[in-house]
Design a binder for these strands. Sequence first.
DNA 1: CCAAAAGTGTTTCACTTACACCCATGA
DNA 2: TCATGGGTGTAAGTGAAACACTTTTGG
Lengths: 229, 229
Amino acid sequence: MAYTYEYARPALTVDCVVFGFDEGDLKLLLIQRGLEPFKGKWALPGGFVRVDESLEEAALRELQEEAGLSKVYLEQLYTFGEVNRDPRERVVTVAYYALVKLGDHLPHGASDAQNAAWFAVNELPRLAFDHEEIIEAALQRLKSKVRYEPIGFELLPKKFTLTQLQHLYEVVLEAPLDKRNFRKKILSMDLLMETDEIEQDVAHRAARLYRFDEAKYRQFKKKGFNFEI
Amino acid sequence: MAYTYEYARPALTVDCVVFGFDEGDLKLLLIQRGLEPFKGKWALPGGFVRVDESLEEAALRELQEEAGLSKVYLEQLYTFGEVNRDPRERVVTVAYYALVKLGDHLPHGASDAQNAAWFAVNELPRLAFDHEEIIEAALQRLKSKVRYEPIGFELLPKKFTLTQLQHLYEVVLEAPLDKRNFRKKILSMDLLMETDEIEQDVAHRAARLYRFDEAKYRQFKKKGFNFEI
DNA sequence: CCAAAAGTGTTTCACTTACACCCATGA
DNA sequence: TCATGGGTGTAAGTGAAACACTTTTGG
């Protein structure tokens, strides 16, 4: 390399906190490490940033390589740079979080990678590095962001029932919501399109399916409208 | 170094967006570059992260070295990692923003560093690198954060008038506020301590000075109270 | 016909908003 | 005595919260 280092450089990685929602549980995708350090421990998908790719490109590449995921909602979370967070050498990591439609993509929470698995967020194993701290930050971010941006829909199938949506909010916000008030509020925003379909294979009255109207939301946002639950 | 690089590494810097508030203006501290690239252009204070210091330590060190600042409010903003944001080589920068009490510290907006100066945010010169983008992000963050965390006080002297506080909010939020409603709301939170002092050297009725009660705020926060303007 | 979840309105209360005049002080 | 900003209260409107029963469907 045609550059003289005045100082040693920290290494740079990206790590991804991947959220999914399934059967009423908020889930998280983890990878079992095949190499030292922390060999055999579960960790966030991630890896070194290459010199010719942006941070977001690195995160998307790692999601594809390690978890077979593409077309996910992705947002930068925070950069973790404590000096001893990696036992080998100095490593700074830019953390991202991703929201995936579990129901759509993955038949039963399985992934392409053999050493990847979904865990309910309140049944996580012990993790490598400072990944518990990173996850904690991601949960906080999700909890606050879900209230003023319509990102909850990224975790549901394209078509969903109002009860599914409410359950999602209840799990993320860790608080019960009133059914009538919730429906009143979300429907009054005029961002959900009622489809002519209903749930299938349920042992009770089938609920109507709705879709989130992405285009309408973008229009509303331009005019100063603010989503809020 | 006892480590074998598999790939070339991006370099890592920190940059600081330093806000001050003076004479009704929101201001920003910039440094005039003495070296190429962008020699002579104004830029954010910042520099390379050393291998033995955390990101926050690096930011604090740069603030001290380049601007003579210490004891400021500092928070990580975002990490900028586009491939060509630095013309020399690949540089990823972790941006921080800082809030300083201009009135307290610096006699008239001057700084220790000879090549540092304060600019009103709407009268900024052309900047080096992607620093305009970083500042834009910092302004957005400040605007949203000031509404639900009591960080506005970090920009005012320890003792301030309610009108000063209101002006600060109006400038940051870019919107006028109703005087009576503002006072009612801020005083009803019970977070301001009335001092027995008043403004000095004004050509009209002198306003009462208040102090922000940090300790009380921490107590309230523990009990689930949320600051909100 | 029973179990299970879907779906639906109204009242109360709290908070936000809009708004104008007198007061104190120094020049 | 005038100019300048300091300081104060009320009424109307809007949105949030609390709350229970009927309907539909499959087993």
